[in-house]
Computed example of a mutant assay.
Amino acid sequence: MIDKFNIGDVVQLKKVHPCGENKWEVMRTGVDFRIKCLGCERQVWLARREFIRRVKKVISTSSDDSIKK
Rank of each mutant, 00 (worst) to 15 (best):
D3E: 14
D32S: 11
I59H: 00
M1N: 06
Q43N: 06
I7Q: 07
D64E: 14
E41I: 01
K15M: 03
C19Y: 06
S60D: 05
L13V: 03
C40L: 09
W45C: 06
L13A: 05
I52F: 15
K4R: 11
G39D: 08
N6P: 00
S66C: 07
Q12M: 12
I7K: 14
C37D: 03
K57V: 05
D64G: 03
G20F: 04
V58G: 02
M1P: 10
K68I: 10
D3V: 09
D3S: 12
E21W: 03
M1F: 08
F51W: 04
C37V: 02
I35C: 04
S62A: 13
K15W: 01
R42G: 05
G20P: 02
V44E: 12
L13N: 07
L46G: 01
S66I: 11
L46E: 13
D3M: 10
I2W: 02
E50P: 00
W24M: 12
T29N: 00
W45I: 14
R28H: 10
W24E: 03
D65V: 08
E50W: 08
D64C: 11
D65P: 06
K14S: 05
S63G: 15
N6L: 14
V58I: 15
L38I: 06
I59E: 13
T61C: 02
I35N: 01
